[in-house]
Design a protein around this nucleic acid. Sequence first.
RNA 1: GUGGGUGUAGCUCAGCGGUUAGAGCAGUGGACUGUGGAUCCACGGGUCGGGGGUUCAAAUCCCCUCACCCACCCCA
Length: 428
Amino acid sequence: MIEKPKGTNDYIHPESTLRKEITNKITSFLENLGYKPIETPVFENIELFKRSAGITSDIVSKEMYEFQDKKGRHLALRPEITAPVVRAIIQNNLLLNHVIKLYYVGSIFRYEKPQKDRYRQATQFGIEYFGQEDYLADFETILICHHIYNSIFNLQVEVHLNSIGCQECRPSYRESIFEYFSKFEDKLCSDCKRRLNENPLRILDCKNPVCKEISNEAPKSIDHLCTSCKKHFNNLLQTLNDFKIPIKLNTLLVRGLDYYNRTVFEIKCNNVDLAGGGRYDYLVREISQGKYDIPAIGFAGGLERLTNILQEQKTFKSLLKEKIRINLVSLTEKADKIISGIYSKLLEKIVLKKKINTPDIEIYLTKFENLSKALKASDKLKINYVVFVGEEELNQDEVTIKNMETGKQQRTKIESFIPTLIGLLKDE
RNA sequence: GUGGGUGUAGCUCAGCGGUUAGAGCAGUGGACUGUGGAUCCACGGGUCGGGGGUUCAAAUCCCCUCACCCACCCCA
């Protein structure tokens, strides 16, 4: 038996249906806000990720699926989607437009030990908003992200928010952080000792209790912001506050990807990280090698984490609307032609469903040697209406429609079957 | 990468050195051959995750390995 690779998942109904419904809700919402879909390859030149996420980040240094193709090209399965999107808009010269709003839904790959809410192939959805440096873009992005979880899916979420400054103010902040943690160097965990030289900001993110304790007294980035960063952040806070978006200022939030600046945020529910994002004003310049200098902001959310939490909270059932199931049963070979004729007519009517304004239906075409078996099987399939033709019906050019819930049944002439059925469905 | 737990029928699990490995649910057939859900009866189904070892004897004990679950690191 060949089994699926470690950390991957097969999604089968009803979960597959739930995932599709969730995705549809998110994407149709984003399309109403003017975001356009974008799709990029699942693998890219490995340099793209090394340059964007940062060579010292865990995602790039130890979690990437790297490989060489037959020509020896160094490639990687994408561990995140922001950098590929940036690469795509540069390559397609989309940056000639002032403002670009994009959304995506796609797979990411990280070589990690699988556990709850963590898989080697996962699905992320997200938006990327290019060309707007003003804090209103930050507001829009956070509002959208919050709305998806809070309003569309009814989850009690927290928005954790921080500002990590820009090119102007970050160097001096980095220096004061370095000085501060240097005093405690021998107390820090081994990872943080390494981080001290590589990327001291990441120490703030460490979960080790000792490091955490030390971090609590560390200098805060928001106290070291330059005038324009401070104004940007204060305006954002004020606006989020005005619109009653519940935010939690988290001065320890720095995020694991190197490309962020200014605003960074995460969405949490019951201590589960559902989404994260932030501003990345220098990434386009970095990837385009200076050709373009365009500010941007975005976020990414995990589809599996959202699906899991909705299943845990049992609020997902409303997303899975049951359809009306109709089983067309031939009870004898002589009735095959009539039943298949009805089936083909119903197919056409499904296409024209909008005109007849009936509930969504599922139709089944089956054959049984006797009625008892047909009904038993229909019961297992949770059929609402069994439509059957046997010897008795054949003699009178009729079909029988049986309502499986009430047990009531009626005969109708073959020609008037469709209108009769539509009449029944309208009463549902 | 580190640590803990679990792998026995399609599913949930029992058995933890001693006949031919079990139960419930699910499946199939029948009682009931044109009227389903209930009940009763019967039947089918297993390399006990895989490999090696100890033993007269291994699902059971030991070692290795694989997979899944959980925690840490990190992250969606």
